[in-house]
Design a protein around this nucleic acid. Structure first.
Length: 490
RNA sequence: CGGGAAGUAGCGCAGCUUGGUUAGCGCGCCUGCUUUGGGAGCAGGAGGUCGCGGGUUCAAAUCCCGCCUUCCCGACCA
């Protein structure tokens, strides 16, 4: 609760029966229950597929706009490429096909006949996009070519989990071509920092660690993969987004060549990058509590619910007036006048869905000219004069995002330990992040950790762990000073 | 794909070991009345190809075989 000039007449914390399995008791079960009870998504009829329900989709739409705005601010244009890709395209980049072939969905029949060449349902679009880039890029004047698409992709996952790993998911994938390696490198990091880190921290309010993936964890076909790693409520890491430098791998495979200012024929340098509906999973697991989802206002489909405790003409007109004032103040408001459903049930439901603020209006308080303002993320209640209510809601909403971020950051810090040996890392990463110098860990150590179901989430320059990986850093080969973030992951 | 568990009404489960009338229970749903300040109460009601396919049998939710799906733990990933 924010401190306010005229302090609330009464403050209390909500006490109710547990709506869900607690996080500490069984985190995976808690996660599934939140997804179901908050009406975010359900399994589709085909294994690994997902039906995203309106509440979940509305969150996705808000994430999409936040990302799309920033992607466009980086100079990228949206386009659309086909769902079906000739199987032969995948084979043109050796590492790429090796990485993706185990999880491809392949169409062998169409129009009732066997296809001459099977088509693949895109697992990612590097191959089609780049086959067109080859046609569009002729001159250095055509570069950089910066394209993004919003699409669905299919990867036949072995162990699906709603939002975190589904066989079909929604995402954006960016594909760019540049004249020089330096440009491509800078752009991959620009997307990482200005689009991904910013959206994750400022909009989703989840702290992320950025850094480079090890060779073992790198994207199939990339020369370098940069990642954003978040810590979930159980101490495990989630890869929330990646930005890849592709070098000239795809340019050579697809013939993306241009004539340079000096008149030489050169291959383009490329990047690709993506984030997906997995971000909704991150939101649930980073911010959720034992009462359900907790949404930062920027992503909440509804920021404030005005709830009629019971119906009467006084209550209704007070609620209508308050809802209008809040709407006029620019907030997304829902009037809950379903008084044929009990107060308790409606309260619990809105808490499950994570609506940041709720205003309860009932005859008792109203007789004193008051209403109750409930803050979801702290589950605290305050009674305020009705004329103050709209102002207080705005004040509370203004603070929720920052408080969620700080809470998540504190939780991550509490579970992050610096260690100096591989066995220590394995022990510490059982419950959070372990930081170990890469020179101490190395690829042998990475193999050893794999036996404990642990991995290097990213390599970050020594020093301030939370500092952005800077795109103007010249020294790219000082690997000895890198710190490995070791964790279990989703 | 390997190891483990499970599929019976929208959800959660019992029944299965030892085959045998009409397959039960809780929640939810519908109707009515009373309620509503933290998951309301009473009364009445609707809802089932027992995951799918095959087999054994006079008879299968129950026994046998195959498949599918879900969950947990691994390997793979946004």
């Amino acid at each position: 609760m924010l401190p306010t000039p005229d302090a609330p007449a009464a403050a209390a914390t909500v006490g109710a029966k547990a709506a869900l399995t607690s996080r500490s008791e069984d985190f995976p079960r808690w996660y599934q229950e939140v997804v179901a009870r908050a009406e975010l998504a359900e399994n589709g009829p085909v294994r690994g597929t997902m039906v995203i329900r309106p509440w979940g989709y509305a969150i996705w739409e808000r994430l999409q706009s936040a990302l799309d705005l920033r992607i466009k601010a980086a100079g990228v244009e949206n386009a659309y490429f086909p769902l079906f890709i000739p199987e032969s395209y995948l084979r043109l980049e050796a590492e790429h096909v090796e990485g993706f072939s185990p999880e491809l969905a392949v169409v062998t029949h169409g129009g009732g006949r066997r296809l001459e060449e099977p088509v693949v349902v895109r697992p990612t679009s590097e191959t089609v996009v780049n086959s067109y880039f080859a046609r569009w890029v002729q001159s250095h004047r055509d570069l950089p070519l910066l394209i993004n698409q919003w699409a669905n992709v299919v990867r036949w996952e072995l162990r699906p989990r709603l939002f975190l790993r589904t066989s079909e998911f929604l995402w954006q994938e960016g594909h760019t071509a540049h004249a020089t390696e330096t440009d491509a490198y800078a752009f991959a990091l620009r997307i990482l920092n200005d689009v991904y880190v910013e959206t994750m921290t400022e909009v989703a309010r989840i702290p992320v660690l950025t850094g480079e993936k090890t060779e073992r964890e790198r994207f199939a076909g990339a020369t370098r993969t940069w990642t954003c790693e978040g810590m979930m409520g159980d101490g495990k890491a989630l890869q929330m987004g990646t930005s890849h430098e592709l070098g000239q791998n795809f340019a050579r495979a697809f013939g993306i060549q241009f004539t340079s200012e000096e008149g030489r024929l050169e291959y383009a340098w490329q990047t690709s990058w993506g984030v997906s509906t997995r971000l909704i999973g991150a939101l649930i697991m980073a911010h959720g509590d034992d009462a359900g989802l907790r949404l930062p206002p920027a992503l909440a489909p509804i920021e404030v619910v005005v709830l009629l405790v019971r119906d009467s003409s006084d209550v209704r007109s007070a609620a209508d007036t308050l809802a209008s004032r809040l709407r006029d103040g620019g907030h997304r408001v829902r009037l809950d006048d379903r008084t044929d459903t009990s107060f308790g049930r409606r309260s619990v439901d809105w808490e499950l869905k994570g609506v940041p603020v709720r205003v309860e209006i009932g005859p008792r308080d109203l007789a004193d000219g008051k209403v109750t303002v409930v803050t979801r993320h702290t589950r605290s209640k305050a009674t305020v004069g009705i004329e103050r209510a709209a102002g207080m809601v705005s004040e509370v909403l203004a603070g929720v995002g920052e408080e969620l971020y700080r809470e998540a950051l504190a939780a991550r810090r509490a579970r992050t330990v610096e260690v100096s040996t591989v066995p220590e890392a394995a022990e510490a990463a059982a419950g959070g992040f372990a930081l170990l110098r890469w020179s101490e860990l190395g690829e042998q150590g990475e193999d050893a950790l794999a036996a404990h179901a642990m991995s290097v989430r990213c390599l970050h320059p020594a020093g301030d762990l939370e500092a952005a990986v800077r795109s103007d850093r010249e020294d790219r080969s000082d690997r000895a000073s890198l710190v490995a973030v070791v964790a279990r992951s989703y």
